[in-house]
Design a protein around this nucleic acid. Structure first.
Lengths: 149, 149
DNA sequence: CCTTCAATGTTGGTGCGACCAACAATAGAG
DNA sequence: CTCTATTGTTGGTCGCACCAACATTGAAGG
């Protein structure tokens, strides 16, 4: 790193800077990997929720995946076009839809799982397993604080 | 957290999810704070670099702040309009500009410093000092790996 | 000297993720 | 039966990161 590339201390000192900058790298790795599978982050989140909790309404998907329900609309549209999910009206409820995973969607999910596993290793690179676990634990703790409050 | 809001394990297990989600909270806190000062993240980065390293070309600012040079143009335009920075042509170099901080810009920087200090506390909330230091250390280590490679 | 290469500022885009307001249709509570 | 909450949907906004292209200029090498 040349002298011209020194980062201001005001930035490097701050946890929020470290977080956001590391997330830049994380997101680049993830989106590159997903792009090769023709997908985006929202797709993975929704496929994962469908797989783990079964068919659900779009509102529930949004809550579980931390995605705004208006964005769920677009994502489910795309997943449906790609044949990874199907949207059917809820018979017991006029307005609500039931979204469910297709076989093909399950395969796509597993493809994306593999991509993500690789990304985690690239991201945490040379960090020993023990410290990696510590990092994950601390991040989870802090995140939990914000999820409830 | 109700049963309908359970987050898929595929997500919560992954470091990249924890990072990106925590960064969502961090960025919300930061941008709220900055918005009250009529500023954005790019402004702070550039003001910080100007303060710590003195007047610089836009290209140097971009490298130091991890901002694309095309985005530096817009940010410096805004900072100049607000009277926080001034752009003058480099006498020794036809095309290059020299951007420097104004008195008013220094004050704005200090205002934003205070905002950010508050944000760090809100962000890391109940995390004890020791673990906060551990988190910062680990994040810094991982980030450094990506900055060189 | 002249040519080639690299750097600079600038314009004008793109993509993703996170959000917000509003609306019609429907369900559920009182 | 009325009021309120929920759902799906449309159509935006914003910030950050990034890219391609271009003219201008400086620096380096033959």
């Amino acid at each position: 790193m040349s002298a011209m590339d020194e980062i201001p201390r005001r930035l490097t000192e701050k946890p929020s800077w470290l977080l956001t900058q590391l997330t830049v790298h994380a997101r680049r790795l993830v989106s590159q990997g997903f792009a090769e599978a023709g997908a985006r982050g929202y797709h993975y989140r929704i496929l994962a929720a469908l797989d783990e909790f079964g068919p659900a309404s779009q509102a529930d998907l949004g809550r579980r995946c931390r995605v705004d329900r208006s964005d769920v609309v677009a994502a489910v549209n795309q997943l449906a076009e790609l044949g990874y999910a199907e949207r059917t009206p809820d018979p017991d409820h006029g307005r609500r839809n039931i979204v469910h995973l297709t076989k093909s969607g399950g395969r796509q999910l597993r493809r994306m799982d593999k991509v993500l596993d690789g990304v985690q290793d690239e991201l945490l690179g040379a960090l020993p397993a023990e410290e990696r676990a510590t990092l994950v634990r601390l991040l989870g703790r802090v995140l939990a604080e914000h999820e409830v409050g």
